[in-house]
Design a protein around this nucleic acid. Structure first.
Length: 723
DNA sequence: TACTATTTAATTTTT
DNA sequence: TTAAATAGTA
């Protein structure tokens, strides 16, 4: 066996990991150290060299993108299509198991997956149903509570109310929510994982089967696993399975949604004799960028400890720009982008990163003005669009009449005279008889309702029945096509004047083509429609179309994880924004923010710009912030401050507010400000100080300019020259 | 039932 | 500021 193609071009640590013996292995893979490469080559090694059957391999990732990439790379490395390799996301694989063993899992065969939005609607409906004031019980918080419990593997009956009435109520909501889901055959994202865990835990034979089958478990982004994912893996590994997990404790940025870095420590305890391999050579960034990242992250206490190094040259210094405000910051970024593009670089090689989505706005405005094409990551994905979800809801009802989530979504869309009153009646019937909306509708229509409402309900029910009948036996895309027409959804949106309605129609037609190109997996013995619906929930599709065009990339630091760009901007590096206000007080939260910053820095290959605004308009009010502490945590020698706008011969403030320990900008009298003082402003020209007020960063002066009239200026931004 | 006015809250997000 | 959700009105 020629192992050259598999081991070639791997460094020592990587090779050790790839060829590790069949024992529990923990690979700590720093940013840009070839993590995916190790995972892929490990799989190839096991199959090609160790002769392990592809069948006995299970590879888990967090995102569909990562799963697709791994599959593709394994296939191309092995040069044979590996059919039925179990590579997928935690949710995808859990789903697969549940489909195969729906009976054992206690689910109906055609159970459907609901996304976060469906889940929230369901909870809102539940509150209405229980006639509970949703200002006191916020649906979002209930959703959060339920998911958090599920992430920890806890069912309502496991929860203790701790004599807290608030908690008792939450648990009761959780309980009712579960009943509705069970009745409608609905499974939310967290439920997929929890059920899959229970499935194995409670079915000895199944567990034995899968343990025997999956000898090798490869896990990507291990630091992001939550309790239930970890429990599932551990169960699956048993005493005989060989877990090979890859992760980076310094890049753990999802604690807030249940991820537990502690699993890295826990793993070593749970699997005694774990081999630890650290990948510390970085192939991505310049030495300067790495030094900055290393120094920054060294401020965190709970770390495994690792130091990235590179053979790369020192490279450019990191440029720090101090902007007046967010517009100035955007102008700066755009100026640099212009240069970058003018030098013949690809726009797509530049990324602008920020902490929170709201920051993209100013940047976008600037980019539009500058006519620079850009793409914002995040936002609504294809299968999340309202019109698409409407169409899917019809399809779900066709598959299962008891799907209340789908029922409520489309019962009166397009409007067909089934108003709030009628729906309310169905709800109360539902509650009294513990049945689905569909059954309630049937009963009520032939009883309690007045003629007009009853007709409307009957019309709706026969519409669904008719579509179910007429689509039977049709190909998937004909089914979809039929449903959007017969349901009159398409006409409904066609009537919608303006661009909005147009795109909606286009999207619905696009759904038909999506159905056309969807290839059901013959191995999944399920109805193509159900498979398509699951696919839609599990893989919501691309955020935005035309990803082809060469565009500057705008995204949050979170969504930048796993990506790399030659040119990176990190914007809004201010206390309160990054680290975010809501994390500052909590030491763990702060450390997570620092890791996020570490992730941001390590995205850059060659050039990194960091910028902050001294004044930023947030929620309509001007805020003054200090530069982020993270900037100060980067060694001076890595950084170069650039402030092209400053041409002061004698600055009113110290030249580097960012570096100063005591940061209160102190203008005031010691700097020679007094009424009648003559000053010069770069834009407004010469003038005389008429008035002073405020202190520190907020100190302002009123200046009567000879040509520009009187103006109030904030001293720390105005850069006045004393004359 | 649809449109308009008012209120409210505003990290991060994949599945 | 602004976007979304809700309440109120035609």
């Amino acid at each position: 066996m020629d192992v050259t193609p598999i081991l070639d071009k791997l460094n020592d640590a990587q090779r050790q990991a790839v060829t590790a013996a069949a024992e529990p292995t923990l690979v700590i893979a720093g940013a840009g150290s070839g993590k995916t490469r190790v995972l892929v080559h490990r799989a190839a090694w096991l199959i090609d060299v160790e002769g392990i059957s592809p069948q006995s391999l299970l590879a888990v990732t967090f995102t569909n993108k990562a799963a697709a990439e791994m599959r593709g790379r394994i296939e191309s490395l092995l040069n044979v299509p590996v059919q039925h390799l179990w590579i997928g996301t935690f949710h995808g694989l859990a789903h697969r198991m549940l489909r195969r063993h729906w009976r054992e899992a206690g689910l109906p065969q055609n159970f459907q997956i609901i996304d976060a939005d469906d889940q929230l609607r369901l909870i809102k409906r539940l509150l209405k149903n229980l006639e509970i004031d949703d200002s006191r019980w916020v649906p979002k918080e209930i959703q959060w509570f339920i998911n958090a419990q599920k992430d920890e593997g806890l069912r309502p009956q496991h929860l203790d109310d701790e004599n807290d009435p608030n908690r008792r109520q939450m648990i009761s909501f959780y309980q009712s929510y579960e009943e509705i889901c069970q009745r409608g055959g609905l499974v939310d994202f967290a439920e997929l994982l929890l059920r899959a865990h229970e499935l194995l835990r409670d079915n000895g034979e199944l567990l034995q089967h899968y343990r025997r089958r999956f000898q090798h478990l490869l896990v990507d982004e291990f630091q992001d696993t939550n309790a239930i994912q970890y429990a599932w893996l551990r169960l699956l590994a048993g005493d005989t399975g060989v877990p090979f997990v890859v992760g980076d404790d310094d890049q753990s940025i999802y604690r807030w949604r249940g991820a537990r870095v502690e699993h890295i420590q826990r793993f070593q305890k749970d699997f005694p004799g774990t081999r630890i391999i650290k990948l510390e050579q970085n192939y991505r960034s310049t030495a300067t960028i790495l030094n900055a990242a290393n120094a920054l992250i060294a401020n965190n206490h709970s770390r495994m400890g690792k130091n990235l190094w590179t053979e790369e040259s020192v490279g450019e210094t990191i440029k720090v720009y101090s902007a007046y405000n967010e517009r100035d910051e955007a102008d700066f970024v755009i100026g640099r982008l212009r240069d970058w593009i003018a030098q013949g670089n690809a726009r797509a090689d530049a990324a602008v990163l920020y902490r929170s989505n709201a920051q993209s706005r100013v940047l976008e405005e600037g980019l539009i003005n500058a006519r620079i094409p850009y793409r914002v990551y995040g936002g609504l994905r294809f299968f999340e669009r309202a019109e698409i979800k409407d169409a899917l809801a019809y399809l779900r009802l066709i598959s299962n009449r008891d799907d209340d989530s789908a029922f409520e979504r489309v019962v009166n869309k397009p409007t067909r005279g089934i108003g709030a009153r009628t729906v309310e009646m169905m709800r109360s019937y539902t509650r009294a008889n513990a049945c689905s909306m569909w059954r309630a509708a049937g009963t009520i229509a032939s009883g309690d309702l007045n003629g007009r409402a009853a007709n409307a309900v009957n019309a709706f029910m026969s519409l669904i029945e008719r579509m179910a009948r007429e689509t039977r036996g049709l190909s998937l895309h004909d089914q979809v096509d039929h449903v959007i027409r017969v349901s009159t959804l398409l006409d409904f949106f066609k009537k919608d004047k303006g661009e909005k309605g147009e795109t909606r129609v286009e999207n619905l037609l696009e759904l038909v083509s999506a159905a056309k190109s969807f290839e059901p997996d013959p191995a999944e013995e399920m109805a193509p429609l159900d498979e398509f619906l699951s696919h839609a929930a599990l893989e919501a599709g691309e955020g935005q179309a035309d990803a082809w065009e060469d565009c500057v990339q705008l995204m949050t630091m979170h969504s930048a994880k796993g990506l790399e760009f030659p040119l990176v901007f990190m914007c809004g590096m201010e206390e309160g924004l990054f680290p975010h206000q809501r994390s500052i007080a909590d030491p763990d939260g702060l450390e997570e923010e620092r890791r996020l910053c570490y992730v941001g820095i390590t995205r850059a290959k060659q050039t990194l710009y960091i910028s902050y605004a001294e004044q930023r308009r947030l929620h309509g009010v001007d805020n003054y912030a200090q530069p982020s502490r993270f900037i100060a945590e980067i060694p001076d020698e890595c950084i170069e401050e650039i402030r092209p706008r400053v041409q002061v011969s004698r600055p009113l403030r110290s030249p580097s507010p960012m570096r100063r320990k005591n940061r209160s900008v102190a203008p005031g009298n010691e700097l020679g400000i007094h009424l009648g003082q003559r000053v010069r402003h770069s834009k407004f020209g010469d003038g005389v100080i008429l008035n002073c007020e405020g202190q520190g960063a907020h100190a302002r002066v009123e200046v009567n300019f000879e040509t520009a009239g009187t103006k109030w200026l904030v001293l720390s931004y105005a850069n006045l020259d004393l004359m």
